[in-house]
């Protein structure tokens, strides 16, 4: 029977194994390589747009060099891609703007984020950079949970929040670093005032 004469049958496309299942290769800033499925990449808006723009074929994926992600190290990227593979095919949540924002941490995510705060910090930066909405939500929820039952003094310690004085000092230092001449003028003005001069100019 020729192809033209073959009977047309309605089939559930999701039940058919995908013939061209592409695995993209990514490289972290410490030269660690990862193979990530096309479906898992869809969780990241940034990577999804990038691979779409590149328009790689399955041959390109194997033959061309791995796509470099300069800002993220291997340890963090491994967590990111583990998360993406586990949640592949899931709908990306839309923020309805409600406060407090209700987010639940699934068991897999809780285990994945059973890491030290330094790595959690990098994971949040990576989720933000790669625009992975749900990973950003759950990681932020973990940070928000740290505030439970804390006093303002304890919150300052947990989140390393600078005091008003420290903020002022940092602001002044930043201003001075931006305009070193401003400090010179101020010192000159103070010196003239001490000498009893009435006019500065």
């Amino acid at each position: 029977m020729s192809v033209e004469n073959a009977p047309v049958v309605d089939v559930d496309e999701a039940a058919i194994p995908v013939e061209k299942k592409m695995y993209y290769r990514f490289e972290s800033n410490d030269k660690k390589e990862f193979r990530v499925s096309e479906l898992a990449i869809q969780q990241s808006e940034t990577l999804n747009r990038l691979v779409e723009a590149m328009g790689y074929t399955s041959e390109d994926v194997e033959n061309k060099p791995a796509i470099a992600i300069e800002n993220i190290d291997g340890k963090t990227l491994k967590l990111v891609f583990q998360w993406c593979e586990h949640h592949k095919g899931e709908a990306i949540p839309v923020d309805d703007g409600s406060v407090p924002k209700i987010v639940e941490i699934p068991e897999f995510d809780a285990k994945l984020m059973d890491i030290d705060n330094g790595l959690l910090f990098k994971l949040i930066w990576a989720a933000d950079y790669l625009n992975i909405v749900q990973l950003l939500n759950v990681s932020c929820k973990k940070v928000a949970n740290m505030a439970q039952g804390k006093t303002p003094a304890q919150l300052r310690r947990v989140y390393l929040l600078p005091s008003d004085e420290e903020d002022e000092a940092a602001k002044r230092a930043a201003q001075e670093a931006q305009d070193p001449r401003a400090r010179e003028v101020e010192e000159e003005f103070e010196e003239r005032k001490r000498q009893g001069g009435n006019s500065f100019f």
């Binding site: 705060n117 949040i124 930066w125 990681s139 932020c140 505030a147 947990v158 989140y159 929040l161």
Partner: peptide, 29 residues
């Protein structure tokens, strides 16, 4: 357990963290 620098997180993440806190926690913060 190194501490987590909330002010050094991306702005979107900072806002997300605060949105996920309860109102009494937001007040204390």
């Amino acid at each position: 357990q190194p501490l987590l620098k909330l002010p050094k997180l991306p702005l979107l993440a900072q806002i997300n963290v605060i949105k996920m806190m309860t109102p009494p926690e937001q007040y204390l913060l």
